[in-house]
């Protein structure tokens, strides 16, 4: 095989992979642009595209409320997880204390936990204490998967930091707090950002808790709302409306993933493979 043929082969393979990755997304976008009966045309592309489905979903209170809930609840659990995890990760990476392996082991075990198993007791408990169908009622159970993830990503990041710089700053006359704030916090910031993005993605993606622990617009998140969506108006097939809503919730996260791809890839794989 000549070099040119080889190059052509690799280009074809690359295009194939890109098509594989993007085709289902393109399909959802295409579906969301279809008008009326075009949904049933059994064709990939719309014959005549329209933005009506988008206008319709944004006029649907079910969807706009869910969007607000999703953003609020995901931010809430991301904030709590990242703060708690940063403290723990600092201790694990920086301090000698017995039980730090145990803390990491717990995080790992919790990450493998089947969340559906605790839905029943939470369902009952939340009804009794009034957390059923509220923001904290979802943000708290989210900690079961967001905390291990944050601890894991942050510990891997903090371990790579040049902590000697902190000592050096103290030698140069800085106080311990100054050294920490002026030297270490800026170095740690990218890792914290990575953990926050990944945690937000996981919270945003939740479906099990979303459908089990909510019943109304008060706290229902977008993935849960999609499952109950029956169309923005009686004149439209629900598929087109669901597709439009799906695109709306997909675009921001995909954009986030693509913008921060380097960090996300290293955050996901750091620690997963022994270096």
């Amino acid at each position: 095989m000549t070099r040119r043929a080889a190059r052509l082969g690799w280009t074809a393979a690359t295009l194939l992979v890109v098509a594989y990755a993007l085709a289902p997304v393109a399909w959802i976008v295409s579906l969301s642009l279809k008008r009326g009966d075009d949904v049933h045309a059994r064709r990939f592309l719309p014959s005549d595209w329209t933005l009506e489905n988008y206008r319709a979903v944004f006029r649907t209170p079910l969807f706009t409320a869910a969007l607000r809930n999703s953003i609020g609840i995901s931010l809430m659990s991301t904030g709590v997880s990242v703060v708690l995890a940063a403290l723990a990760a600092y201790a694990i990476a920086r301090l000698e204390f017995p039980g730090r392996r145990w803390v990491l082991g717990t995080a790992l075990a919790v990450a493998m936990f089947p969340v559906i198993s605790i839905v029943g007791p939470l369902f009952e408990l939340w009804r009794t204490v009034g957390l059923y169908d509220t923001w904290p009622g979802l943000a708290i159970p989210y900690l079961s998967f967001t905390l291990p993830l944050s601890i894991w990503v942050l510990t891997a990041h903090f371990r790579q930091l040049p902590w000697e710089l902190e000592e050096a700053a103290i030698m140069d006359g800085a106080t311990r707090w100054q050294a920490f704030r002026e030297v270490m916090v800026p170095l740690a910031a990218p890792g914290v950002a990575t953990a926050a993005i990944l945690t937000f993605l996981f919270a945003w993606n939740d479906f099990v808790f979303g459908i089990s622990l909510t019943s109304t617009d008060r706290a229902r998140t977008v993935p849960a709302a999609l499952a109950f969506f029956t169309g923005a108006s009686q004149f439209q097939h629900p598929a087109a409306s669901i597709a439009a809503a799906a695109v709306v919730v997909t675009v921001p996260v995909v954009a986030l993933v693509l913008v921060f791809q380097r960090r996300i890839v290293s955050g996901l794989t750091s620690g997963a493979v022994k270096g």
Binding site: N205, V222, A227, A243, L258, Q261, V265
Partner: peptide
């Protein structure tokens, strides 16, 4: 290019992906 493209399926909400396949 490949890495960027394959991050799209990873980043997409699983319920959205399931709906996409169902409708297809």
């Amino acid at each position: 290019v490949v890495r960027t493209a394959i991050l799209v399926p990873y980043g997409i909400v699983s319920v959205v992906s399931a709906f996409g396949w169902r409708f297809a």
